[in-house]
Structure formats: C-alpha cells, structure tokens
Amino acid sequence: MALVLLGIVALVAGGCACVVWAERGGPRWARVVATVTLAAGELLRGSGKNRRGLNRSNGDGD
C-alpha cells in the first residue's frame, strides 16, 4: 500500500514539475504532460465539489 501511495506522490510531483517547465517553454512532451496534469486537477476539483454538495447537511448555520 505504501508503494502505491509513493507512486501516486511521484506522479503528482512529476506532473507539477512539467507544468512549471512547460510554462517556461519546455519541450513538447512536457507541455502534453502539463496539459494532462491540469485537466486531471480540474476533474478532481469538480468531483470534490459534487461530493461536498451531496454530503451537506440541512442546516448551514447561515
């Protein structure tokens, strides 16, 4: 289980590095990896919003 988590962390770190490198004019493959990384982040962000909406209780306190 720890190896799987370590692999995920390595992929995330590599994706973030490619995003920075692509912003500075890196090679084409780095721009492709950066695009995939940013798209995956947007998908995860969107799914997090949907989950929070489903788990919300009736009383917000507002």
Rank of each mutant, 00 (worst) to 15 (best):
G46P: 00
A2K: 12
G14H: 05
V4Y: 03
G7L: 02
L3F: 00
V20C: 08
P27L: 09
R45F: 15
L54K: 14
G59N: 14
C18P: 05
V33P: 01
A39I: 13
D62N: 11
G53I: 12
V12D: 05
N55E: 15
A10I: 10
R51W: 06
V20N: 05
G26V: 02
G59I: 11
G25V: 08
A17T: 02
N50C: 10
A39Q: 09
L43N: 00
G15F: 01
A10Q: 07
A22G: 02
N58A: 11
P27H: 13
G25D: 09
G26L: 02
G46Q: 14
D60F: 15
V33L: 03
L43H: 02
A22P: 01
G61I: 05
D62F: 08
P27E: 11
G14R: 07
S57Y: 05
C16T: 08
G46I: 09
R24M: 15
L43V: 10
L5T: 05
D60S: 13
G48S: 08
T35S: 13
W21H: 07
G48F: 04
L38V: 12
W29Q: 09
A34I: 06
T35F: 15
L5A: 14
G46L: 15
G25W: 01
N50R: 15
R24G: 14
R24D: 15
G14Q: 04
N55T: 13
S57N: 06
L6C: 03
A17V: 03
L43Q: 04
G61C: 07
R51V: 14
E23G: 12
G48H: 04
I8Y: 09
M1S: 09
A30R: 09
N58K: 10
R51E: 11
A17I: 01
G25Q: 06
R52L: 13
V36L: 11
G15P: 00
L43D: 03
L54R: 15
S47H: 07
A13T: 12
V19A: 04
E42C: 13
L11H: 02
L6N: 00
G53R: 15
M1P: 02
R28E: 10
D60I: 07
S57D: 07
M1D: 09
G59S: 14
G48I: 03
L38A: 11
G41E: 02
C16S: 07
G26I: 03
G26M: 01
W29I: 06
L44V: 12
G26W: 04
G48E: 06
T37S: 06
E42D: 11
L5Q: 12
K49W: 14
M1F: 09
G14D: 06
T35L: 15
A17P: 02
G7Q: 00
